[in-house]
Design a protein around this nucleic acid. Structure first.
Length: 256
DNA sequence: AAGGAGTCCAACCGCTGCCGT
DNA sequence: TACGGCAGCGGTTGGACTCCT
């Protein structure tokens, strides 16, 4: 925001607000040379800004595909839905709303939707709630890797054939994910939605998985099944090992 | 009209992951 | 494999604006 004095002249605000001239410089530079290196671009473009600041300004304000203006009812629903599924992964949510930035969605969430979300949470059973309703504790204090592992276990939930007591892996080939351009978390949720919504599995069956006897044999099936779904996140792929996982099912799992 | 409280949004900060060497 | 540089992300903050008393 640019302050103006009584004569309508621009005054420098204390916070480093971008002037129209700076915007113009950045736009012109990117238009001419493209984005090659944010760190070095400011100097080349004649801007007394950090690369980070330029990047942020471009991403959140100057990009030609930015959609400005009010959020529609549909946008609200989309944000609420994806926030319910993904949590505060604003960039992933923004990917669902072309033209909207993560910053904008984050702000809009905090100012408008947060309250609504609280009211809505009691209305219907969502996938994330089903995950929560299992007895897996995904604790905030757990390392991200552990959280991913627990989440992965939870993701197997929908394919549990509760009537037969057979655990079927969620057949999502990992190379599908690694080759994807979209956020892995988004894809996982989409995958669940597609497969789960089309299956005949009832809520009741889904909820029962953690009540099922979970034997060592189950673990063997999972490990020997060539299509056993490993967690799709980079965290899983990169972390060397989870020596010990506590599942609040009464079973402590050692992963060798 | 004044001013205090609340809201909104742009910008900043710090952390994390990726990638090249 | 280790390391450094860079980009991206989410949380936080500053300040203008709006509403209410």
């Amino acid at each position: 925001m640019v302050k103006t004095n009584s004569d309508g002249e621009k005054m420098p605000a204390r916070r480093n607000v971008w002037s129209p001239e700076e915007d113009q410089k950045l736009k012109a530079y990117i238009k001419r040379y493209g984005i090659w290196n944010w760190c070095r671009m400011p100097e080349a473009a004649g801007l007394a800004r950090s690369g980070k600041s330029c990047r942020l300004r471009w991403m959140n304000y100057l990009r030609p595909d930015i959609k400005r203006g009010n959020f529609s009812q549909e946008d609200d629903e989309t944000i609420l839905k994806w926030h319910e599924l993904l949590g505060n992964r604003w960039s992933a949510i923004a990917a669902k709303l072309p033209g909207r930035t993560d910053n904008e969605i984050k702000n809009y969430w905090h100012s408008h939707l947060k309250k609504r979300s609280k009211i809505n949470t009691s209305s219907s059973m969502t996938i994330s709630q089903m995950v929560k309703s299992s007895e897996v504790e995904v604790n905030k204090n757990d390392s991200p890797g552990i959280q991913d592992l627990l989440l992965c276990d939870a993701l197997i939930l929908p394919n549990m054939d509760a009537t037969k007591g057979i655990l079927m892996s969620t057949k999502m080939p990992i190379n599908d994910i690694s080759s994807s351009r979209t956020d892995p978390a988004v894809e996982i949720v989409q995958h669940i939605e597609e497969n789960f919504s089309s299956s005949e599995t009832s809520d009741q069956n889904v909820l029962s998985i953690w009540e099922q006897p979970f034997s060592f044999q189950d673990m063997c099936i999972l490990e020997t099944d060539p299509e056993f779904m490993v967690p799709a996140t980079a965290m899983w792929l990169e972390e060397p090992m989870y020596p010990y996982v506590y599942l609040d099912t009464g079973y402590d799992l050692w992963i060798d």
